[in-house]
């Protein structure tokens, strides 16, 4: 049974307004438990609209969202449960920090769940550990942290709700390469340690290739492709047609192919080096 499904989900917004570009039409998708799904698509493809349906922030005009076997709009209680089962972390989450201390900020979600004090304490410490925040930072004001630390503290605030599905909307936006790699590494290890499902909305095909197990491609409010990284990235022509840029190494392989040297496909530097070396490395 999938942990998260959308059945015929449609959301149109007000027709004729600029928001119409955010509409989604008849989305059918099943996310299996434990997957790390990269969601890609250019701005206005509807990917942000889709993920806001998954935790019940937006109500579909048609169709159902099923989380953990339950229709989240069945009754008020189910909708509220969905908020905590599906943790959504927005873009630039550091701008939602508001408490006096990092500790209090991370405990905001668990507190809203109505958990007991000891449980909250346990969860805050665990979440801080997942995102690599040192214990001494917990008593500091969130506004005194560095940019990267702020972002990780904000993500910890969502992780502390211990959602079954964690959705991160552009978690690496605006970070430098070091900060970016750190967040990606964190997401990967979080998933490995907790076994929970992670959805990663991203503009970066490179980032998705690095850590995702599956890729969901959105275009014009619809699901264009959904499959493993290999399956999706091998359609480089189709991806480019909808305005997505494949990683540079994939382009290298495309050029090689058009010159009569078919080495298959690669989308990370590691994989590409491996293929080329196996082809020509032995005789060197």
């Amino acid at each position: 049974m999938p942990i998260l499904s959308a059945n015929g989900v449609t959301h149109l917004y007000n027709k004729g307004t600029p928001s119409q570009s955010k509409a989604i039409y008849d989305i059918n998708v099943d996310i299996e438990e434990g997957e790390l799904v990269g969601i890609i698509g250019h701005t206005g493809s509807g990917k942000s609209t889709l993920v806001q349906h998954f935790n019940g922030l937006l109500k579909p005009e048609n169709g159902q969202i099923i989380v953990d076997g339950k229709d989240i709009w069945k009754d008020k209680k189910s909708t509220r449960e969905a908020r905590f089962k599906v943790g959504l972390c927005f873009q630039y989450p550091e701008y939602q920090l508001f408490e006096e201390t990092v500790y209090k900020d991370i405990s905001f979600g668990p507190k809203n769940m109505g958990l007991k004090e000891e449980e909250i304490h346990k969860r805050v410490l665990l979440a801080a550990e997942y995102v690599g925040l040192k214990k001494e930072l917990l008593e500091k004001s969130p506004f005194d942290l560095s940019g990267g630390e702020k972002r990780r503290a904000a993500i910890a605030g969502v992780i502390a709700m211990q959602p079954k599905v964690l959705i991160l909307d552009e978690p690496t936006a605006g970070l430098d390469p070091k900060g970016r790699d750190r967040i990606l590494e964190m997401i990967k290890s979080y998933r490995e340690r907790t076994g929970s499902t992670v959805l990663l909305v991203s503009h970066s095909m490179e980032d998705v290739a690095k850590i995702a197990t599956k890729v969901l491609v959105m275009n014009k409010g619809q699901v264009e492709m959904y499959g493993t990284v290999d399956e999706v990235y091998s359609h480089s022509v189709e991806l480019r047609n909808i305005g997505l840029n494949v990683p540079q190494v994939s382009k290298v392989f495309e050029i090689l192919k058009s010159n009569g040297m078919n080495l298959g496909s690669a989308y990370t530097v590691e994989k590409a080096a491996e293929i080329i070396l196996s082809k020509g490395g032995a005789s060197v």
Binding site: R83, F90, Q96, F108, G109, M161
Partner: peptide, 9 residues
């Protein structure tokens, strides 16, 4: 929206 996602009522 961000605070609602953290269960703010």
């Amino acid at each position: 929206n961000a605070q609602k996602a953290r269960g703010a009522n």
